[in-house]
């Protein structure tokens, strides 16, 4: 790891990787809860309030999504929320501001499509994340093979670049990706885009067993996990973390008081995980 400039950060800086590791360590034996937040949806201020409600109701980490014009890995709910956020004027800097505000309470991992990273430049992007106190970066359209430049930039700034694996990933790729994982490994539980689905406890177990054989990093399961039962199934199947997205975004979209609705759901999800 290169030596980052230390001008704007405290002398006892923890890296993003350190913060993420601590959050997972706190829940060893169970699973860390990582709700997904669409930054800037329905607007910047409300999305910040939703994130604060997540933190107050049992979130161990927050996955903060940056709205994007062409979200290829997302299903209809998150796609629509991203489109609405952009229409409401959300910008990358606005969303990073939300991340900075939340980072004081829980580690924040940014979920951001690759073109937004390239537009700013990998190094400048990673530096901005560090300055905002954001711990990690998930890039859903940056598979193994395309990641080196962004991985180097993240490493230089202490940002954990979290790779994804899917049920279609071969064991050969799993081994390579598992070795490169920083912070945690994001296991996509379904062959598909984000969205709510029924119970698939057995599929969780098979995927987690394959993934955990290939990495020492914590493994968080996401995509299609919507209820406290799903979360408990994932934890029971060996997930170190559980990511819940579309269900929470839908709650925010459907409620007159999005922060309260989202907070209530996160509390239920947290109660489903043995603490």
């Amino acid at each position: 790891m290169g030596k980052p400039a230390r001008d704007r950060v405290p002398a006892v800086e923890q890296t993003g990787e350190d913060r993420i590791a601590a959050a997972f360590a706190l829940r060893s034996g169970s699973a860390a809860l990582m709700p997904y937040l669409m930054g800037g949806f329905p607007d910047i201020a409300t999305s910040r309030a939703i994130g604060e409600a997540y933190a107050a109701n049992g979130a161990d980490l927050i996955e903060l999504g940056v709205p994007y014009s062409d979200p290829l890995a997302d299903g209809p709910v998150i796609h629509a929320a991203g489109t609405a956020a952009l229409r409401a004027g959300a910008t990358l800097d606005g969303v990073l501001g939300v991340g900075e505000a939340l980072a004081g309470r829980v580690p924040v991992v940014l979920m951001c499509y690759v073109n937004l990273v390239l537009a700013r430049g990998a190094d400048a992007f990673a530096q901005t994340l560090r300055e905002a106190g954001i711990s990690g970066l998930i890039v859903p359209d940056l598979p193994l093979g395309e990641e080196p430049a962004i991985a180097d930039a993240c490493a230089a700034h202490g940002i954990a670049l979290v790779p994804l694996v899917a049920p279609t990933t071969t064991d050969e790729r799993l081994a390579l990706i598992g070795a490169r994982a920083r912070g945690f490994l994001y296991a996509v539980s379904v062959t598909g885009t984000t969205g709510e689905r029924g119970s698939r406890e057995q599929a969780f177990g098979e995927l987690l067993a394959r993934v955990k054989a290939q990495t020492t990093a914590p493994v968080a399961l996401g995509f299609g996990i919507a209820t406290a039962e799903h979360a408990a199934e994932a934890a029971g199947a060996g997930a170190d973390g559980v990511i819940v997205g579309s269900r929470l975004v839908r709650a925010a979209a459907e409620s007159d008081d999005p922060a309260a609705a989202a907070g209530e759901l996160v509390a239920k999800l947290a109660a489903g995980l043995i603490r």
């Binding site: 290829l72 690759v114 093979g145 395309e146 899917a166 049920p167 990933t169 790729r173």
Partner: peptide, 12 residues
């Protein structure tokens, strides 16, 4: 060029 797609598609 390149292959900037979700991991799910890489084997295909």
């Amino acid at each position: 060029g390149g292959q900037y797609v979700p991991e799910t598609l890489m084997p295909a």
